[in-house]
Structure formats: C-alpha cells, structure tokens
Amino acid sequence: MGKSDEELQTQLELLKIEHRDLDQAIAALIEAGSPDQLRTARLKKRKLQLRDRIILLENQLIPDIIA
C-alpha cells in the first residue's frame, strides 16, 4: 500500500528543508574558501539526489494533467 498524500507532503517538506540546508552549507564552504573539494563535491552530490527525490514526490502528489 502506498503512502498517503499527507505522508508524502511531510516527507517532501523534510527533503526541501534538508536541500536548503545543504545549499547553505555548500555556500558557506565556498565563501570560507574551504580547500576541501571532496566534501563540497559530496554535499553537491547529496543535494542533487535530494532534488531528484523531491521531483519524484512532487510528481506523485500532483496529478498528471497531460495524461
């Protein structure tokens, strides 16, 4: 059985918060001139994974109008 829209919406909000937090963390590392390129790359990769999950959840919540 799939998750309810309410559960999906809650999960979506949590992912968006984590995505925004990662965005701020990446910006802070870059601004600080951090030489840790590996850490920055890992954060960017995680951010892309979150974005993909956010898109999937939004697609589940929003009915396909062009069916």
Results as ranks from 00 to 15, higher is better:
3 K>Q: 13
3 K>W: 14
3 K>I: 05
3 K>V: 02
4 S>G: 15
4 S>Q: 13
6 E>A: 14
7 E>M: 12
8 L>R: 06
8 L>I: 03
8 L>C: 12
11 Q>G: 00
11 Q>N: 01
11 Q>H: 01
11 Q>T: 00
12 L>W: 03
12 L>C: 06
13 E>P: 00
13 E>W: 09
13 E>F: 12
13 E>I: 03
14 L>P: 00
14 L>T: 07
14 L>V: 04
16 K>S: 13
17 I>P: 01
17 I>C: 12
18 E>N: 07
18 E>L: 11
20 R>W: 06
20 R>S: 11
21 D>M: 06
21 D>K: 10
21 D>P: 01
22 L>C: 09
23 D>E: 15
23 D>N: 13
23 D>M: 14
24 Q>L: 08
24 Q>Y: 11
25 A>W: 14
25 A>P: 01
26 I>S: 11
26 I>V: 14
26 I>H: 15
26 I>E: 13
27 A>F: 03
28 A>F: 13
29 L>M: 15
29 L>V: 07
30 I>V: 15
31 E>Q: 10
32 A>N: 13
33 G>M: 04
34 S>A: 10
34 S>V: 04
35 P>I: 09
35 P>D: 15
35 P>M: 11
35 P>N: 13
35 P>L: 06
36 D>N: 04
37 Q>P: 00
38 L>P: 01
39 R>V: 00
39 R>M: 01
40 T>K: 05
40 T>M: 02
40 T>S: 00
40 T>G: 00
41 A>E: 15
41 A>M: 10
44 K>D: 10
44 K>Q: 14
45 K>C: 08
45 K>I: 12
46 R>N: 08
46 R>Y: 11
48 L>T: 09
48 L>K: 06
49 Q>E: 12
50 L>Y: 08
50 L>S: 04
51 R>P: 00
51 R>E: 12
51 R>W: 06
51 R>T: 03
51 R>L: 08
53 R>D: 06
53 R>G: 02
56 L>R: 07
